[in-house]
């Protein structure tokens, strides 16, 4: 469903991604780990279409389409979802309002009828309950004054509502307390299906105890330097990243 080939990207003439190859098939869960500044969020942003980045080489196909031919919102409507490392606050815009606009935009693209207010609300209520969030979050401004953990839960709520084909989760586990981590993991696991791909960026093996990935990749200096199964995460936890650098240099 997602096929990244030799992807190079830079920002303000600084090369950040230096030839990434990664294929995610429907039904698979991939985890990307790597030191701070290695380019994990950059990869997520490039996939989502942030215009600040210049794609200097490589291709990405998503569901058979050239991803770079699509506008940001078109990618989203095609089923690409990014749970942000730092979700934006949009003061005064009701959380539920944004959610409804988003869901209906995606539904429209898929040739489905827009939800009416009643159907939409019943669905939202079901999902917000599943995420163990208070309904009052629906009527607050988008992420306005949310705590770090509340923002992350809200991202997952949006994901559950939008039912994407590919979910890219950028450090969704950072800043979560133990209970919240369980709830967020429950949300992500609920999304696992044969039709869906998931790409999770994380620093912690702990998350992978809850969401067991099929593949683990290590990103360093804008390149995937090692891939393996979930045991690779355990190895990283024990050894850190340095040994990989040495291995790469060697």
């Amino acid at each position: 469903m997602l096929d990244i080939k030799n992807l190079h990207a830079s920002i303000d003439n600084n090369k950040i991604l230096n030839g990434i190859d990664l294929e995610i098939k429907a039904g698979e869960v991939h985890a990307i780990m790597g030191p701070n500044g290695s380019g994990k969020s950059t990869l997520a942003s490039v996939l989502a279409g942030r215009s600040e980045y210049e794609i200097t080489d490589g291709t990405v196909t998503f569901n058979g389409k050239d991803l770079f031919e699509l506008e940001i919102e078109e990618r989203a409507r095609e089923g690409l979802f990014l749970a942000f490392q730092y979700p934006q606050e949009i003061p005064g815009v009701n959380n539920v309002y944004l959610l409804k606009a988003a869901v209906n935009a995606v539904r429209k693209h898929r040739g489905l009828d827009e939800f009416d207010a009643y159907d939409f609300l019943s669905l939202v209520r079901e999902k917000i309950k599943f995420m163990e969030m208070d309904e009052k979050f629906l009527h607050r401004g988008v992420n306005e004054g949310f705590s770090g953990g509340e923002k992350k839960r809200n991202e997952i709520l949006q994901m559950l509502m939008l039912e994407p084909k590919l979910a890219v989760l950028d450090e969704t586990d950072s800043g979560l307390d133990i209970d919240a981590l369980k709830v967020v993991s429950k949300g992500v696991n609920a999304m696992r299906s044969d039709e869906r791909g998931i790409l999770m960026v994380t620093h912690y093996q702990r998350l992978l105890d809850y969401i067991k990935p099929d593949f683990v990749h290590v990103l360093m200096n804008g390149k995937i330097v090692k891939s393996g199964d979930h045991t690779l995460a355990l190895e990283l936890e024990a050894k850190g990243y340095d040994w990989l650098l040495d291995a790469e240099a060697a």
Partner: peptide, 27 residues
């Protein structure tokens, strides 16, 4: 960043601007 956030959720740029502006004017 706000525009990008909205567009990443499938909302067109124009709708996103309107949404943000309306939020600003809400009170």
């Amino acid at each position: 960043d706000q525009l990008f956030y909205c567009r990443q959720r499938g909302i067109s740029e124009e709708d996103a601007v309107n949404m943000i502006v309306n939020g600003f004017c809400k009170s």
